[in-house]
């Protein structure tokens, strides 16, 4: 389930990045590549595990859904931290000056 949720997040963030491209002031491209990296890694994991052990390709249950949500939230936290630290709008500078 977390593979599907991460892949969906990757597609949505890529679409948002493309709509605003070439402007990437808010680093949506970074978030998109984060999701794509995780999607590809889990895809390799799922395919190799499926070929070796068989069973269900997607694990669909509440635990897997909660993991998928946690993964997306962690990626968003990393993205927000990167955004606040790099401060592309200069908001922190302005706020700290006043």
């Amino acid at each position: 389930m977390w593979l599907l949720m991460t892949a969906l997040a990757a597609v949505i963030t890529t679409a948002i990045w493309y709509v605003n491209a070439p402007d990437d002031k808010y680093k949506v491209g970074l978030l998109s590549l984060f999701f794509w990296g995780a999607t590809l890694m889990w895809l390799a994991d799922h395919v190799m595990a499926y070929l070796a052990e068989g069973g269900e390709f997607f694990e669909i249950n509440m635990d897997a859904t909660m993991l998928g949500m946690s993964v997306i939230i962690l990626a968003l936290i990393v993205w927000v931290l990167t955004l606040v630290i790099s401060d592309p709008k200069g908001v922190l500078k302005t706020v700290l000056k006043t």
Binding site: W2, T6, G29, L30, L33, F34, F35, W36, G37, A38, L40, M41, W42, L67, S70, V71, L74, A75, V78
Partner: peptide
């Protein structure tokens, strides 16, 4: 930079899955 972002993003999110 594209490769680094994909690799670090994947590593961070997979680390969470392993902790989970």
């Amino acid at each position: 930079g594209w490769l680094n972002k994909m690799l670090w993003g994947g590593v961070i999110l997979l680390a969470l899955e392993h902790v989970w």
